[in-house]
């Protein structure tokens, strides 16, 4: 699934790196708890979260993720947007709640991927 399709399915606004939205992503992880992102993410390249602070971007960067989707209408600050740009992470913002957002993406073929077993 492309990031563009994610944006369309979730009626989301692209906040930065619009030139990268035709990138293909295979799987996603949904969480508001960044420690769990660090614990469980393996190769998932999309993070769906209702949390908006700079640690979300840093966590996504740590895990080599290429896209963060903010749900429940959360808006990142300009500082967060430039941090994401620096690190090549596309940011999307949607008014969907977490559960329907994940459901729509899953139903359309974006899987959960596998769990980290380091």
């Amino acid at each position: 699934m492309t990031i563009r399709t994610i944006a369309e399915l979730l009626n989301a606004k692209v906040l930065c790196l619009e030139d990268k939205i035709d990138f293909d992503v295979k799987s996603a992880f949904g969480s508001d708890m960044m420690s769990d992102v660090l614990a469980f993410v393996k190769e998932q390249s999309v993070l769906i979260t209702g949390l908006a602070n700079p640690q979300v971007i840093r966590t996504a960067e740590m895990m080599d993720m290429s896209c963060v989707v903010f749900v429940r209408g959360k808006q990142p600050t300009p500082e967060m947007i430039s941090l994401a740009e620096e690190n090549g992470i596309v940011l999307l913002a949607s008014n969907e709640r977490m559960y329907p957002a994940c459901g729509k993406l899953y139903q359309n073929g974006l899987s959960g991927g596998s769990i980290a077993t380091v």
Partner: peptide, 16 residues
């Protein structure tokens, strides 16, 4: 509320 402090920090450090 910032996404940490759930008691996963030290276990994660050991895990990795």
């Amino acid at each position: 509320s910032l996404g940490f402090g759930a008691g996963m920090g030290l276990p994660n450090m050991k895990k990795y």
